[in-house]
Structure formats: structure tokens, C-alpha cells
Amino acid sequence: MSGKPLFVLVSSGEHEKLHIAAMLASVAAVSDRPVEVFVSMNAIFAFAKDIEPRQRYKGGAFSKLLLERRAPDTLQLLQQGRELGQLKIHACSMALDLLGWTVDNLVTDLFDGDLGLTRFLSDAEAGDLVTF
């Protein structure tokens, strides 16, 4: 039986916040909770196609530790959540519009498409919403 849906709004470009959001989303998804992730604002840059991890992630002391040690990669965690659980990821349509980007500018096979905030907020009434 599925648990209460979890909605995760990620707007920070800070690696540490992206990483804990990815941990939360992926573990919830493999624990029988449907999860929807909405990526907006500075967070969208971490999902740009064809960049190296050291360019992708901007952060402080913990970001350095995550990259130096064998911590799972942030985007890979989200990918695992998609493969092993019920996890969907949406790019904020406003953020894409402002950048002049489409979903094709983002890493492949991770996003379920773009979505407006109104729809995300409406869907989130069915569950818990957390923001990073």
C-alpha cells in the first residue's frame, strides 16, 4: 500500500540542500511513498546537461566532503529513486522560460517534463510539502 505522497520543492543551488533533498526524495520513493520533485530557481543550474560534478555542485564544507568521499552523487540518487520507486521530477516552466531553456537543456532521462507552480501546488494538497 502506498503512503502519503511527498512533494519536494527545490530552489536552492547549494549542493548540500540539493543533496539532502535528493536523499529525502529517493529514500521516500523506495519506501512506498509517491514523490514529486519540483526544480526551480538556482537549483535548475545543477541539472544542466553535459557539465562535470565539480562545476555542477556549488557549496561549502559539506559539499567538499560529499565530492571527496564516496557519497552517492546527488543526481544519481534521484535517478535511483526513479528506477526503484515512485519518483517524478519536474522542471519549473517559469525558470526554463527565464533562461530560454527547454527540458532538452537538462540532464537526459531524469525529468518527467516541465510543470507550472500552480499545478504543483494544487497536486501538493494531497500530501506533505517540503522545500529546500
Partner: peptide, 16 residues
């Protein structure tokens, strides 16, 4: 050598 939630995710993938 892997950090949380790596071992859990590896186990779930194998379990599937």
C-alpha cells in the same frame, strides 16, 4: 566505503 543511503539503495536494487 559507501555512505548513506548508498548501501540501502544497492540492497533495494538487488532485492527487486
Amino acid at each position: 566505503g559507501a555512505f548513506c543511503p548508498g548501501p540501502l539503495m544497492e540492497m533495494i536494487a538487488t532485492l527487486k
